[in-house]
């Protein structure tokens, strides 16, 4: 024994090695993560300009722009959320407020878990066969949205459930004890108190929709044009709704196609826009989680 005294710390060479490995891994992870975000941002920011964001790619006008893709992405977000939010919140309310523990509940929970584990390419195949071919919805934004609905459903259900669980039982008992019906209690007490969870789920769903590509390639297509607006107001509104049934490529699809063609400048431009959107969504999630916390 080199160190006979117990007050002197013995050095383990393997400790130093493992500590080194920990620091190295952490450094590598952080370096990679920040490097990826920074590189795409720096590389792409040069391409992003006002005309890049507000025009559609056209050989005639000699413009390269992604407005069409931005509009498609917005359509996709709105339609998907319109369908998925009520479904997801409803499912969470059933699981938390109505269901009694048993076979059915564990089935629902297992399938929700499964849905969140299925890779997007499988959703893409399913959407293609079911919504496109079987239901005859064609190659359209609607087909894409319905496919995405299945993907984001678990996110919304799970976040709403978490939020419902944090609402104290005394709220429920108080409302019921004063004679409110269950539905009235859910509508006026539970939903407002769990708003932060619902909003967080919705924002996370938006992030998923914005970042999705494999599920959309074969369901929503890659069109990037805008409806041609005319003087006729009713006609224009009709065109806005009609767009739902037309193909439309989101930002990620545009990035993929550009990358496939080797047009890296535009690809990095789109990547930069996507990263800014993801950053904003992340911030929003934080704000939502803090701001909308139920008042206790």
């Amino acid at each position: 024994m080199r160190n006979p005294s117990i007050t002197v710390k013995r050095k383990h060479p393997i400790d130093t090695f493992l500590m080194g490995a920990i620091y190295l891994s952490a450094f590598l992870s952080v370096f990679l993560l920040l490097g990826i975000i920074g590189y795409v941002f720096v590389k792409g920011i040069g391409t992003v300009s006002l005309s890049f964001l507000t025009t559609v790619t056209s050989a005639l006008n000699q413009t390269v722009g992604i407005l069409g893709n931005i509009v498609n992405t917005l359509y996709m977000i709105v339609i998907t959320l319109l369908i998925a939010t009520p479904l997801g919140v409803g499912a969470a309310i059933y699981l938390n407020e109505y269901a009694k523990p048993g076979r059915l509940v564990s089935m629902i929970e297992f399938t929700t878990e499964t849905l969140s584990g299925i890779p997007s390419i499988i959703f893409g195949l399913f959407g293609m066969v079911f919504f496109w071919e079987t239901l005859g919805l064609g190659y359209s934004i609607l087909t894409g949205s319905l496919t995405l609905t299945l993907m984001v459903l678990p996110l919304i259900t799970r976040n709403t459930q978490e939020a419902l669980r944090t609402v104290p039982d005394s709220y429920r008992n108080g409302a019921l004890g004063m004679g409110a019906t269950k539905w009235y209690m859910i509508r006026t007490i539970l939903l407002p108190s769990s708003m932060s969870g619902i909003v967080t789920g919705v924002i996370l769903a938006i992030g998923r929709i914005v970042g999705e590509s494999a599920a959309l390639l074969f369901t929503a297509g890659s069109a990037y044009r805008l409806p041609r607006f005319t003087e006729d107001v009713a006609g224009n509104i009709g065109k806005c709704f009609g767009k739902i049934m037309e193909p439309g490529g989101t930002l990620t699809i545009e990035l993929y196609l550009r990358m496939q063609k080797g047009e890296y400048d535009v690809a990095f431009g789109v990547g930069c826009v996507l990263i800014v959107i993801v950053l904003c969504i992340n911030l929003l999630t934080k704000v939502a989680a803090n701001r909308l916390k139920p008042v206790k």
């Binding site: 952080v30 975000i37 990035l255 990358m259 990547g271 990263i275 993801v278 950053l279 992340n282």
Partner: peptide, 18 residues
């Protein structure tokens, strides 16, 4: 921590591009 969370949200095509 937030940087790691941010990374989870980056679209997969961006990873492919890099």
């Amino acid at each position: 921590k937030p940087a790691v969370e941010l990374l989870a949200g980056i679209p997969s095509v961006v990873y492919g591009l890099l």
